Simulated assay, not measured.
Amino acid sequence: MSGDIPVFDGHNDILLKLYRNRHDDPVDAFIQGRDSFHIDLPKARAGGLFGGLFALYSPSSDNISFDGMKDGRYQIPMPTPMDASGGRPPILAKLAILLRIERESHGAVVRCTSTRDIHAARDRGALAVVVHLEGAEAIDPDLEFLEVLYACGLRSLGPVWSRNNVFGHGVPFHFPGSPDMGPGLTDNGKRLIEACNRMKIVVDLSHITEKGFWDVARLSTAPLVATHSNAHALCPSPRNLTDRQLDAIRDTGGMVGLNFATCFLRSDGEMRSDTPVDLMVEQLDYLIERLGEDHVGLGSDFDGAAIPEAVGSSAGLPVLIDALRTRGHSDALLRKIGSENWLSLLARTID
């Protein structure tokens, strides 16, 4: 197994996992590694992962079970909307965890706010963290907290998770289903998109409804981005992108990051760890055919979803790289998929 292709990943939820396991010191857990993590410092180094978008997310208070997603046909209830008073405390707690990791790693983990920072971190062997907000519940309609988050390093933002908020509407976890499952952006959401463009913050469309997607497409002056989504044509989940959406992303010079979650890879929508890596390759090949080789990368959803056991964690990224190589993809294309396309996208948005 080879590990010669460096990887910048478009999405992970390790900060959520660290937040939920606070009986274990999160700094030691991340720096030393834990068997239960998809991403920690040792696994990242083992798999060639040098950086990525690290998500901050406000967990729902609802006692909602996602066990039904194992069966292939499901309709998970939409979580109750959350305002800033409920959404902000967990975001601050996760930020505090990240700041401690950065400080106590002594340079091994670095928050980055530009591609220059990312390149510098990679060159000295550090893990480059770009802060992402998955669902904008923590932000007030006046966008004052957006300024605070920006000062803390926020450079990527999804207006919604799969939950409605004051900025827009998310797609529920249903299967099968169309992404056209509700209204789009609110007036507050439109102001948020304009602010993100002005502040050079990536707008992530991974969880938004199709109407919301087109609202962003009409408003935004930046490339369209879905950090962790797949092709609806191969897996008809509302979380995946239709061909028309993929075409719009391509036409703006945007990006799609392949989501490793098995329920978004499989045509039957099942959440199964024995899902073959070949399905990841098929999704990537479809995205490359539709978008072009300059607009596809990885958006693993590590530590936020069940992924194929053959990959297992960030240490197993070379398994996917080798599968793509076996399919005939050149090293030049693998370097684009691994990191170059993400770095190009970020250079055109946050710099």
Results as ranks from 00 to 15, higher is better:
224 L>T: 10
191 R>S: 06
187 D>I: 05
227 T>R: 03
206 S>N: 00
174 H>F: 15
197 N>P: 12
197 N>W: 11
232 H>I: 04
222 A>W: 05
169 H>V: 06
242 T>A: 00
260 F>I: 11
224 L>K: 08
210 E>L: 12
219 L>A: 15
179 P>E: 07
241 L>S: 10
226 A>N: 03
182 G>W: 07
187 D>T: 01
200 K>R: 14
194 E>Y: 06
245 Q>W: 03
166 V>M: 07
261 A>R: 04
217 A>L: 12
201 I>K: 13
190 K>Q: 08
230 N>M: 07
225 V>N: 14
219 L>K: 15
189 G>F: 05
198 R>K: 14
257 G>M: 00
202 V>M: 01
231 A>F: 07
186 T>K: 13
221 T>I: 13
234 L>K: 14
232 H>E: 03
228 H>T: 13
212 G>H: 10
187 D>N: 05
268 D>Y: 09
212 G>N: 11
164 N>G: 11
178 S>Q: 08
229 S>D: 10
191 R>H: 08
257 G>Q: 05
202 V>D: 04
163 R>A: 12
186 T>S: 13
223 P>W: 09
240 N>H: 13
220 S>I: 02
194 E>W: 05
160 V>D: 05
193 I>Q: 15
246 L>D: 01
239 R>L: 00
233 A>F: 01
261 A>G: 03
204 D>M: 15
251 D>A: 14
232 H>F: 06
159 P>C: 07
259 N>W: 08
204 D>E: 15
170 G>C: 08
230 N>H: 01
196 C>A: 07
211 K>D: 07
225 V>Y: 15
212 G>D: 10
160 V>Y: 07
254 G>W: 05
199 M>Y: 02
269 G>T: 08
197 N>H: 11
238 P>N: 08
174 H>Q: 15
247 D>Y: 10
206 S>V: 02
215 D>N: 09
194 E>R: 10
226 A>M: 05
180 D>Y: 15
